[in-house]
Design a protein around this nucleic acid. Sequence first.
DNA 1: AACCCACACAACCGCCGAGAT
DNA 2: AATCTCGGCGGTTGTGTGGGT
Length: 277
Amino acid sequence: MGRPPCCDKVGIKKGPWTPEEDIILVTYIQEHGPGNWRSVPTNTGLLRCSKSCRLRWTNYLRPGIKRGNFTPHEEGMIVHLQALWGNKWAAIASYLPQRTDNDIKNYWNTHLKKKIKKLQSAFDSQMAPSHSPLSISTAGKSHQNMPSAKNAHHYPNIYASSTQNISRLLEGWMISSTPQKKLADQETNKECLNGLVEGVDFEFESVLAFDNGCWDKMMMMSGDYYPKGNDKAACILHERKLQKQESLNNPPLTFFDRWLLDESASQLDGAIEQQVN
DNA sequence: AACCCACACAACCGCCGAGAT
DNA sequence: AATCTCGGCGGTTGTGTGGGT
């Protein structure tokens, strides 16, 4: 068979990351920028495989990641996009700034799938399946114009907050007042408004505004996509990659916008909220 | 108090594509 | 053209937590 997975190597640690490991990883990435993951375990002394380091950074330590409950609008976005594209989590995540594909995938598998199953059976009992807007999509493989992907609770109070702290520390490393930070501020505003319609709408619009390469630009500024500290050649190469991605990453939103804004979308949100209550 | 079980989610695995050699 | 390396993605698993009995 093929070569053994990198994480099967002797001496490679598995399991939950400790705060100490996180700090080592974050410190290294602060100095060298994300990328070249192969060299990370070697240079940091971390007993983790490169893949594990990359995932830890991408899903948890990367600045600007929002954790915690999904808003009804985020739920709605996920449901619509899943229906549209299937289980293309990375693509869906590209329309939900601050959420990782892993987070969305988990949320779908643990919450939304069940909710929709229930709702769908309720719909099915009342009308023909073709009228249901809630069918769990098996689409995805057939969609050629997909946007390309890029992108402790076990110690919820202590560890999650330590991760947040690391993220906050990193915000100082980021360029101040990035679009991402503005979004975080908007989110804070929204939370302050505590469910007021204005606040929710504000966030919703900001989500829809993530078009025309905003995401890529944001990621560049956050340092996730841009090879900070790497040599010039790597940067040029990266620019080329970005240009190439940009042409793939920005599907026309007009259809999607209309979908999200049409009546069925609000019906769905209502249905979901009803199901939650 | 002890056990069981469902849940939530972090982390891993396997596969794939792109780029380099 | 073939092979290798790296990084990304989606599916799945492992494990701690909390609620119920």
